[in-house]
Amino acid sequence: MAGERGGEEVTLLGHWGSPYVIRVRLALYLNGVPYTYVEEDLRNKSDLLLRSNPVHQTVPVLIHSGRPVCESQVILQYIDEVFVAGSGSASSDFSLLPTDPHERAVARFWAAYVDDEIGAPWDKAFRSGTEEERAEWMGKVAAAVPGLELGLRECTDGGRNGCFFGGAGGVGYVDVVLGGVAPYVHAMEKVSGLRLFDADKTPMLAAWLERFGELEVARAVLPDVDRVVGYVRMIHEKNAAKGAE
């Protein structure tokens, strides 16, 4: 998807395998925002990336009319505030975050839970040099998943109010935040046999994973699972080689 929005240029700097970039692409698609995508080589970062995010020098970075916005959850909220939903949206009044202040606070709580309790240890596992270290960090990820199941139950009134974190409103903010790791949930099962969203232990999350993957936005944006599997194995091998030096 490329172009301009109302005469204002929108550019996304990213890396195809980043869950944080994937969530931004999901949000842009849902809001119907045309944009230019620039794939970054994270081993040789562009001057544009270094200028746009001099503090962390990481992706994603959204550049709107020449002004950069950094950090994925900040970008999601920016998209939700600035861009009116377009043709890619489910409805003309689509919004990632609910209008009710309490529901909005709940959504932000669970989005923070995804990043702090699942994303952070998963990133540690991804960077680990040994299988033992990786297993320890992934154990922390697995231990946090039942809490997320409770969150999905809360947001959907036990499943009676839809199957997404957005409740009756369908896909919402938490779904997009979590959607960035959906390909990795599938990939980890293929790489290590770890089924994070198990139908017996966390049935609502298992159903969420299946239904999210069936959405038009997921089919359009999410990377191929086999490609993610290859990427994960490559990173594991690279980190193991570093650890052996």
Results as ranks from 00 to 15, higher is better:
Leu28Asn: 05
Leu28Asp: 05
Tyr29Asp: 03
Leu30Asp: 11
Gly32Arg: 06
Gly32Tyr: 08
Val33Tyr: 08
Pro34His: 10
Tyr35Leu: 12
Tyr35Asn: 09
Tyr37Leu: 14
Tyr37Gln: 12
Glu39Gln: 14
Asp41Leu: 01
Leu42Asp: 09
Leu42Asn: 09
Leu42Gln: 08
Leu42Val: 10
Asn44Val: 04
Asn44Pro: 01
Asn44Gly: 10
Lys45Ile: 13
Ser46Thr: 13
Ser46Ala: 11
Leu48Ile: 09
Arg51Ile: 00
Arg51Gly: 09
Asn53Asp: 12
Asn53Met: 10
Asn53Tyr: 08
Pro54Arg: 03
His56Trp: 09
Gln57Phe: 00
Thr58Gly: 00
Thr58Phe: 06
Ile63Asp: 05
Ile63Arg: 06
Ser65Pro: 04
Gly66Cys: 09
Gly66Lys: 13
Pro68Ile: 08
Pro68Thr: 03
Val69Thr: 08
Val69Cys: 03
Ser72Gly: 11
Ser72Ala: 13
Ser72Pro: 15
Ser72Asp: 12
Ser72His: 13
Gln73Lys: 09
Gln73Ile: 07
Val74Ala: 12
Val74Arg: 02
Gln77Ser: 08
Tyr78Glu: 05
Tyr78Lys: 07
Ile79Arg: 08
Asp80Met: 02
Glu81His: 12
Val82Phe: 12
Val84Ile: 12
Ala85Met: 13
Gly86Asp: 04
Gly86Tyr: 07
Ser87Lys: 12
Gly88Ile: 11
Ala90Gln: 11
Ala90Asn: 06
Ser91Lys: 12
Asp93Gln: 14
Phe94Cys: 01
Phe94Lys: 02
Ser95Met: 07
Leu96Ile: 05
Leu97Pro: 06
Pro98Phe: 03
Asp100Thr: 01
His102Lys: 08
Glu103His: 11
Arg104Pro: 06
Ala105Ile: 04
Val106Gln: 09
Val106Glu: 01
Ala107Gln: 10
Ala107Cys: 12
Phe109Cys: 00
Trp110Ser: 06
Tyr113Cys: 05
Tyr113Gly: 06
Val114Gly: 04
Val114Phe: 11
Val114Asn: 04
Glu117Ser: 07
Glu117Phe: 05
Glu117Gly: 00
Ile118Val: 11
Pro121Gly: 10
Trp122Ile: 00
Asp123Ser: 08
Ala125His: 10
Arg127Gly: 02
Arg127Ser: 12
Gly129Ala: 10
Gly129Ser: 13
Thr130Pro: 03
Thr130Leu: 01
Thr130Asn: 02
Glu131His: 10
Glu131Ser: 14
Glu132Met: 05
Glu132Gln: 11
Glu132Asn: 03
Glu133Trp: 05
Arg134Leu: 14
Arg134Glu: 14
Arg134Pro: 03
Ala135Leu: 14
Glu136Pro: 00
Met138Phe: 15
Met138Lys: 14
Met138Leu: 15
Gly139Glu: 14
Lys140Pro: 06
Lys140Ile: 07
Ala142Leu: 11
Ala143Phe: 02
Ala144Thr: 08
Pro146Ser: 14
Pro146Ile: 11
Gly147His: 07
Gly147Trp: 03
Gly147Pro: 06
Leu148Pro: 03
Glu149Gly: 14
Leu150Pro: 01
Leu150Gly: 11
Gly151Lys: 13
Leu152Met: 08
Arg153Asn: 14
Glu154Ile: 01
Cys155Asn: 01
Cys155Arg: 05
Thr156Gly: 07
Asp157Leu: 12
Arg160Thr: 15
Gly162Thr: 12
Gly162Val: 09
Gly162Cys: 10
Cys163Arg: 10
Phe164Cys: 05
Phe165Met: 07
Gly166Ser: 09
Gly166Phe: 03
Gly167Tyr: 02
Gly167Trp: 02
Val171Glu: 08
Gly172Ile: 01
Val174Tyr: 04
Val174Pro: 02
Asp175Cys: 00
